[in-house]
Amino acid sequence: MTTTQADVPPLHHGPAIAAPRRRRLHISRASLRAYAPAVVLLALCLLVTLANPSFIETRNLIRVANAAAVPLTLAMGTTFIILIGSIDLSAEGAVAVAAMVVVLLAKNDLNGMDLGWGAALLAVCAAGLMGLISGLVQTGLRIPSFMATLGTWFIGLGLATYMLGGSAVRLMDPRLRFLALGRFGGLPVAVWVALAAFAVAAVIQTQTRLGRHILALGGGEDLAEYSGISPARVRILAFTLAGLFYGVAGVLAATQLGQSNAVIGDGRLFAAITAVVVGGTALTGGEGGVFNTLIGVLIVTVLSNGMVLLGISPYVQQTVQGLMIIAAVALSLDRLRLKIVK
């Protein structure tokens, strides 16, 4: 977390107007503040464990990891987009398209296709292509990412509905089902895939030029442009990258459920953005990163797992979740760095 912020200090140029009034809210030292989301996560785990000790059992921790696999992969993509200061609403559409492609091209109960891993690869590529289109459309037509991706969301959803003919098609390929059902070192393979996605995202963010440019763009697009970065190019690459992550998430979701229908992505978009923000990444861009998102995804997953473990009535779960998320963000946001909260 600290390394990502250390990369960009010169690019943060907002005057510190709001900060002085808020200072009394922060008792801890600035260096500790960066770890605030992790502290919130630990506190949450502690709280749930006290109420129901079976939370801490290995079996349950594995289940939490499994439940976090798809959201984590998805949120990796979302993180890069939010780091630029843009927003990507196409996640659910891209997940639906990827799940549709993998199911229709692998062994299924609708047609005679049987491409195996090739189907998974093509599914990821299809979602990546959607991301590329989102990027090209918004930079080419110069329209806000919000609208470009809202459009591609609908288009993706429509394509998935059309191709599946409205039905839920079952995935019968045992090699692909192995992603969800197989285990390696005690963990479901899906968790390893998600961890690999996380590792790739971390390398891209910290070790590549694209990663640095994404942060620079979010820190201040005009400044980034003066220093020779092409915002359009970075934007197109970032949206393509996000699409690829959505594609992996879509494949994982299809293998977990053993089927695909067009609504397989339902509800995942806002969950992913919430996780990113809870982790401490700023929606205005330039602050935070994939490490924050890992914590954010875990906070959100532990929260929903914990509510079931605590036996909280479904009638109040939504309210509790809303309040907890406000609390988590309020506690973990590094407001000294975020001069402007939008």
Partner: peptide
Amino acid sequence: LRVPSFVA
């Protein structure tokens, strides 16, 4: 609480 409006 300075929570981004999106999440708030």
